[in-house]
Write a protein that binds this DNA or RNA. Sequence first.
DNA 1: GAAAAATAGGGAGCGTACTGCATAAATTTT
DNA 2: AAAATTTATGCAGTACGCTCCCTATTTTTC
Lengths: 171, 171
Amino acid sequence: MAQEMPGDTTQPPAEESPFGQTKYDDLWGRPGYLVRRLHQIHMGLFAEACDGLDLTAVQYAVLSVLYSGEAFDQLSLSKAVGIDRTSGADVIKRLVRRGLATREPSIEDRRARVVRITEAGRTFVRDVRPQMEAAQDKLVSPLSEEEHDIFMQLLRKMIEANNGHSRAPMK
Amino acid sequence: MAQEMPGDTTQPPAEESPFGQTKYDDLWGRPGYLVRRLHQIHMGLFAEACDGLDLTAVQYAVLSVLYSGEAFDQLSLSKAVGIDRTSGADVIKRLVRRGLATREPSIEDRRARVVRITEAGRTFVRDVRPQMEAAQDKLVSPLSEEEHDIFMQLLRKMIEANNGHSRAPMK
DNA sequence: GAAAAATAGGGAGCGTACTGCATAAATTTT
DNA sequence: AAAATTTATGCAGTACGCTCCCTATTTTTC
């Protein structure tokens, strides 16, 4: 539970830095590092909110995409959620195991497996939605409404511009 | 790509959202979701920049903390980098295996293992630093300098406020 | 000083995110 | 129509982030 604050002995004084310059010397000055930390925090918040439900944010995202009832092959589903195809297959496997989704061979394309949400899955999504929202709310709770909007805007700007550099680009 | 399955008439087209409201309906409206995507993108950018070096952002973060030469026990080191103790032990194990760090039993506390960077590790940090910076730069390249500052400020605000939630709490 | 609590670490195991290689089925080219 | 290419998936393996359970040491408390 113990957490570290910025200046917390983690970083050496300036002269110890690899090049003696200022940019990105401190972990807390590295955007990628802070994004990783915030991602971990969100996962923690989500797990906390869904205490005992044994559900992850990614699993909920997959179920969210499936919620409409539309059928997806595994690759399209993974892309829609923005995860790697192999990760997606794993997530789907777990959802199927819990009876929240089905995965059956496609009739039109014999390579593909068709994934659909079950009624139990739809019910589950509805039941858990408040917890998902609580985790989101808590994550951004330190921000004003205006800051929240700016934050989302900046996130989207970075994601859209760099979309191709992730193994799992969206759409 | 998403297949239109013929017998797919089980779900009503309109009002597919669990509660029919607007907040967080779309994946792109969920901050936690976007943060996960951006995290993935940064990992991809980092791997791209460090092509062939077989180095991850987390490994570089650990080496960054060790760079000053200060000795850390595994738990302190993990906390300084903001990762779980078991994850930290794994990362350290890999760094030791590559000769970038050492891990020896502590003399003062026989429970602890003392981790230090090696000279090879320090050299490696210096050599790879430009690639790390390139990944950071590319991640935030869509932002103006002002937006960059705002983004970092908002990230830090959220992280500091939610600091205790990065791991599931002990019950 | 002995018992109780806290701390550092190991090991097993799960979930996500990826790389590589392989295979089968579909599509495109020739 | 045959060959080449693309596509959808699977499996094995790596990395990280976590949980739970366990042992071995401090450190605290009585």
